[in-house]
């Protein structure tokens, strides 16, 4: 039980409450994050409702292949993250570490794909400003939002990757046992980043397909 005692932190009286507290705290934080993205989605919705044609034209220039690959990668990473959490709860340390490793790999693959996509976009000068190839002008709003939305999502995912790697090191060196409250928070955050992508994908990549 000394192993468990190390997982317990001030000011919590026991580990069960600590896990509950961390998970609750994380959900409060996610409520905050939800509104962070909501402001962005709201801007998108308003501009799209005012400029449907421009958004259709602009949306047709997004790279649906990259977007779809990334959707698959992220959804799969959510699967492995869930299994990692379940394994941690069942005190299966090795399985936890393996699943976290796969999750990180999938996250990194996402970021690499994203990088390739950004490269292609820049090649095509799809950055708002002078020399923007599309018209009408409102297409620039779509592409401005594209860079901001995907950029912020990528930053969130990068943060997730860094945190998961840190957690793997902590677990690997047995600084904190896997069944502590750490995994609760990490898993919920990771799924949140995934669920933002679930909405970004149709709004960005499927906007101008039909």
């Amino acid at each position: 039980m000394t192993d468990l005692a190390r997982a317990l932190q001030e000011p919590w009286p026991d580990l069960r409450m600590q896990r509950e507290g961390v998970s609750l705290g994380m959900w409060f934080f996610l409520a905050s994050e939800v509104l962070f993205f909501a402001a962005l989605f709201c801007s998108y919705a308003i501009y799209r409702s005012y400029n449907p044609e421009a958004f259709r034209i602009a949306g047709a220039h997004t790279k649906v292949i990259y977007g779809s690959i990334n959707t698959v990668l992220l959804l799969t990473s959510s699967l492995t993250m869930t299994v990692a959490l379940r394994a941690a709860t069942a005190q299966l340390r090795r399985v936890t570490l393996i699943c976290l490793g796969i999750t990180v790999a999938l996250g990194l693959a996402f970021l690499i794909t994203k990088g390739l996509e950004y490269h292609d976009d820049i090649e095509e000068h799809l950055v708002p400003g002078t020399g923007f190839p599309l018209s009408p002008p409102a297409t620039q709003i779509f592409w401005g939002l594209y860079w901001i939305m995907t950029g912020i999502h990528a930053i969130h995912l990068s943060a997730g990757v860094v945190v998961v790697i840190a957690v793997m090191i902590i677990f690997g060196r047995r600084i904190i046992p896997v069944q502590g409250s750490t995994m609760e928070g990490v898993a919920i955050y990771w799924h949140f980043v995934d669920s933002v992508w679930i909405f970004l994908y149709p709004l960005i990549y499927l906007a101008g397909r039909a």
């Binding site: 905050s32 994050e33 509104l35 962070f36 993205f37 909501a38 402001a39 962005l40 801007s43 950055v127 708002p128 400003g129 620039q140 709003i141 592409w143 401005g144 939002l145 860079w147 901001i148 912020i152």
Partner: peptide, 20 residues
């Protein structure tokens, strides 16, 4: 967080020239 986003949007417009 909504304030954070509003500031981020004007900063993006000012810095990168994304015309939001």
């Amino acid at each position: 967080p909504v304030l954070a986003m509003s500031l981020l949007l004007i900063s993006a417009e000012r810095f990168f020239g994304f015309p939001i």
